[in-house]
Amino acid sequence: MKVSSAEFIKNYGTLADKALQEAVTITRNGRDRLVLISSEEYGRLRESYRRALRIEDLSDEDIELISKAEVPAEYGYLDELIKDWKPEE
């Protein structure tokens, strides 16, 4: 659901309740500016954040598991997307 910031201010209670069920995008001058979501959804998103590690911080067991990892068959098509990709220099 998308609403203007003026509409959000006028209907805060109703739209805050709506955000418990679905994300409410708040726009300003026609551009997306904020998204209101429930605290439960926010917590779920925070838990799913990826954490970056330096290779030096990986254990031998981690490295072993990574070396044995396989891409699930349903994602095999992604190999085609990057087949000819070259990093920018």
Rank of each mutant, 00 (worst) to 15 (best):
D17S: 14
L36Y: 02
E70F: 01
S4L: 06
L45S: 08
W85Y: 04
I37D: 03
V71N: 03
D32N: 15
A52D: 14
I66Y: 05
F8G: 08
N11Q: 10
R51P: 03
G13A: 12
S38D: 03
T25P: 04
D84W: 03
P87T: 06
L15I: 06
E40H: 10
L36Q: 08
E88L: 04
L78E: 02
A69K: 02
R31T: 14
D62M: 03
A23C: 00
V71S: 03
R50A: 15
R51Q: 14
N11C: 07
G13R: 12
S67F: 09
L58Y: 02
S67N: 14
S39V: 11
S67M: 13
S67R: 15
D32W: 07
I63S: 04
W85A: 02
L53M: 13
T27H: 06
N29L: 12
L81T: 00
V35P: 00
I63W: 01
L15M: 08
R33N: 14
L53K: 13
K2P: 04
P87V: 00
R51N: 11
R46D: 13
L20K: 13
R46L: 15
E47I: 08
D60G: 10
K83R: 05
E47Y: 12
K83A: 04
R51V: 15
Y77E: 02
D60W: 05
N29D: 15
G76E: 03
Y75F: 09
T14V: 14
G76M: 02
R44I: 00
I55R: 11
L20S: 09
I26P: 01
L34N: 11
D62G: 06
L20N: 13
R28V: 13
L78R: 01
E80I: 03
V24D: 05
T25A: 10
K2M: 10
D32K: 13
R31M: 14
Q21L: 13
E61K: 10
R50L: 15
T25C: 07
E70I: 03
G43W: 09
Y75D: 00
S59M: 06
D32Y: 09
E47V: 08
K68Y: 08
A52T: 15
L15S: 07
E56R: 05
W85H: 04
N11M: 06
G76W: 03
G43R: 12
D62A: 06
